[in-house]
Write a protein that binds this DNA or RNA. Structure first.
Length: 438
RNA sequence: GACCCGUUCGUCUAACGGUUAGGACUCCAGAUUUUCAUUCUGGCAAUAGGGGUUCGAUUCCCCUACGGGUUGCCA
């Protein structure tokens, strides 16, 4: 087989959505796996619906996901231009071939392609052998390939471009399965070898309806904003419709490249599960070094108006194992970066339910002030000492201290909190919290 | 309507025609952590229904139901 060439061919009419991203991913994985070439072609033949924002969203989305293309926008290549809007001469030339062969005829100013009336069998890389009968013209009317304004429709330009760009494998959504016989007929009329096709199942909403624009989780551009790592999203998308055929499921893009195969792609559509996507993201977050985590979370913390100098890297590191999305970080550490505390009502109520808490917290504040030296260990140990001195179990005091210092029921390790806050602030927050318990 | 693809725990999925139908997410219960999270252990939970073929069917065939797709001078 000649060298593998795949392509992703989006039309810039909206943002890049997860379905398109997964199609791009599978084409990318397949090309990389086989040492082939991945082409990015923009199908911008519908001038009325195309927008510059949509073009930019495609490029930035692909870049964010790490799906670097070899030919296309910004990369050049021997088969350009890679925008269909700039390829009219190519279409005119091939249209002329069809006209000379008598395969097209005029209809109301438009030109229709005359199908051969016979059953068309395709050998889909994912779906297997599928036959569509083109014998009955009323079911499969000859299709317009050139509009009355002289422009060409999707089916024709798509085929001409795949032909000229020497695409060997077309991996696309199942919504194109019924289009494939049309494309096959075009290739045959053009006397060209068609690529191999693989149709992957669509992604559905959690309720089973078709996932489209505007649905939750549909826009790739939203993921970075919510604090997803591209590694997490790529991992999740890969598992939607493809299986490694093993119990493993945490994969880097390199892992995916080496394991990917079209044979392992499912035929049934998959539903989008935000919970699992977030969990996978957490798994990839866990793989970051504390420094890398702090750096990744930085934009979110800055956007929340919190300072990211001084202790910030150490502060961020305390919640590395406690968040699923980076967008959760500012909330999780704001009490360490700012003195403005907001108390979680439920957590405070829980402390109020503990009759001994007030006395214990007051005693601890005093003991903190009296501590000869202040360190993570001495401070943390003092909690136990103070509790025991009052005849209470250490565990009884841990939660109230957590709420007093952070205002929350969940957060970093108590020792980390004490060390970062320091002696004065810790004692001060304990005392001020006691005042709120009345 | 017609045509095409599909149907395993709620979700993502595994299972040469022979498994107590496995794993993961979620949820619940324990353990660990003097706190939170992480981690670990255990639990709940599925072959859409009906016919065949077969010694034996999640697996092969047919029918029904359900879901999705296509049916444009959109892509």
């Amino acid at each position: 087989m000649s060298a593998v060439r795949t392509r992703f061919a989006p039309s810039p009419t909206g943002y890049l959505h997860v379905g398109g991203a997964r199609t791009a991913l599978f084409n990318y994985l397949f090309a990389r796996k086989h040492g082939g070439t991945f082409v990015l072609r923009v199908e911008d033949t519908d001038a009325a619906r195309n927008t510059q924002e949509a073009r930019d969203a495609i490029f930035s989305g692909m870049e964010w996901l790490g799906l670097d293309w070899d030919e296309g926008e910004g990369k050049g290549g021997d088969f350009g231009p890679y925008n269909q809007s700039e390829r009219k001469e190519n279409y005119d030339r091939w249209f002329e071939v069809l006209r000379e062969k008598g395969r097209v005829y005029e209809d109301d100013g438009a030109w229709r392609f005359r199908f051969e009336r016979k059953p068309i069998t395709m050998h889909d890389l994912v779906c297997g052998e599928v036959t569509i009968d083109y014998t009955d013209e009323s079911n499969t009317p000859d299709m317009v390939i050139r509009r009355s304004d002289g422009s060409y429709v999707f089916h024709f330009v798509n085929v001409v471009d795949d032909l000229e760009m020497q695409i060997t494998h077309v991996i696309r959504g199942e919504d194109h399965l019924m289009n494939t016989p049309k494309h096959l007929q075009l290739f045959e009329a053009l006397e060209a070898q068609p690529p191999l096709y693989g149709h992957i199942p669509l992604i559905l909403n959690p309720n089973g309806s078709k996932m489209s624009k505007r649905d939750v989780g549909a826009a790739v551009g939203d993921y970075p904003r919510q604090g997803y790592l591209s590694a997490g999203v790529v991992n999740f998308l890969a598992l939607l419709g493809w299986s490694p055929k093993s119990d493993e499921e945490i994969f880097t893009i390199e892992d995916l490249i080496s394991r990917f195969s079209l044979e392992a792609v499912n035929r049934a559509p998959a539903r989008f599960d935000a919970e699992k996507c977030a969990w996978l993201n957490q798994q990839h977050l866990l793989k970051l070094t504390p420094e890398a985590f702090a750096e990744a979370a930085k934009p979110f913390v800055e956007a929340a108006g919190l300072p990211v100098d001084g202790d910030y890297p150490a502060v961020a590191a305390t919640v590395r194992e406690k968040v699923r999305l980076l967008a959760e970080v500012p909330d999780a550490i704001s009490f360490l970066l700012s003195d403005e505390l907001s108390y979680d009502a439920e957590a405070v109520e829980k402390v109020k339910g503990n009759a001994a808490a007030k006395g214990l917290l007051t005693a601890l504040a005093d003991d903190f002030s009296a501590l000869p030296e202040w360190s993570l260990d001495t401070a943390k140990n003092q909690i136990g000492e103070t509790a025991k001195a009052a005849g209470a179990k250490p565990g009884q005091l841990m939660f109230p201290v957590r709420v007093a210092l952070s205002g929350k029921a969940h957060g970093p390790d108590l020792g980390d909190i004490l060390a970062l806050l320091g002696r004065e602030k810790s004692a001060e927050r304990l005392r001020s919290f006691v005042g709120k318990l009345d």
